[in-house]
Simulated assay, not measured.
Amino acid sequence: MTADDVPVTVLLADDEAMVRAGVRAILAADPGIEVVAEAGDGRAAVELTRAHRPRVALLDIRMPKLDGLAAAAEIRRLVPATATVMLTTFGEDEYVARALGHGASGFLLKAGDPRELLAGVRAVAEGGAYLSPPVARRVIELNGDRMARVPAARDRTAGLTDREREVLGLVGAGLSNAEIARRLFLTEGTVKGYLTSIFTRLDVRNRVQAAIIAYEAGLAG
């Protein structure tokens, strides 16, 4: 069995059984993704992640016992190899804004396009990040005066090379390293090198924060 044959294992956590069923059905449509455990609260999500060690933990933000942000923090502390992706609605803006600083690998809308769910899970499983475009735009609005932030973002990206700006724009579009490499006819190692440089130049800690700047600067399309 090659690495490509190994399914992406996922823990799914949401306190609404019908939501879990819907998300599980979407994930089941991709033969390369396997839901290995489900939880109805944040505490169970942490314990099941420790037991099953999935590649991705897909977490509702609002859950009993432990909310999604706290569960994500615990998972990153106890099982750092598991990437966390937050499921959100537009009614949870403050949670999305808070989560940006906590290193979540992705943000997806419950009511979004099912293809985004699959793309997001695969992107973070490959070590990338995924920010649903509507969530990205909303976060930008929430983080202050967008008219003031756009020039600031453009100033921050002005020092990047043309290729770095191109890579940053694709990060903003939610592409993984492998997808960026294919799009630009580069090796994944070269893409990683560009990302290291981009993160340093922009003074950001992760791809999600870089994606926000890409949107603000108008690089993500």
Rank of each mutant, 00 (worst) to 15 (best):
V208W: 00
V6F: 13
H102D: 15
I33K: 11
R53D: 07
R182H: 14
V150K: 13
A51Y: 09
N206L: 00
V19C: 00
A72H: 14
F199P: 09
Y95N: 05
R50S: 11
R201L: 00
A123M: 08
L69A: 00
D14K: 09
D14Q: 08
M18R: 15
R55M: 11
V135E: 11
R154V: 11
L87V: 04
V150G: 06
V19R: 00
Q209R: 13
P31D: 04
V85F: 04
I75T: 06
V85R: 04
Y95F: 12
D30K: 04
A3I: 11
L69Q: 08
D14S: 06
G189C: 04
T200R: 08
A37M: 05
V56R: 09
V10P: 15
V8P: 12
E216L: 08
R98F: 02
V96M: 11
A28V: 06
G106N: 13
E116R: 14
P133Q: 03
D93F: 14
A83M: 05
T187V: 04
L108R: 11
A28C: 05
R115W: 10
R205N: 14
A181I: 10
P7N: 02
A44C: 03
Y95V: 00
D15V: 00
A214H: 11
A17C: 10
R43H: 10
L78S: 13
V139P: 15
P64L: 00
R76G: 03
I33V: 13
G120V: 12
L100M: 13
E47Y: 00
P7Q: 07
G221L: 05
P31R: 03
V135C: 06
R115G: 15
E179F: 02
L131H: 05
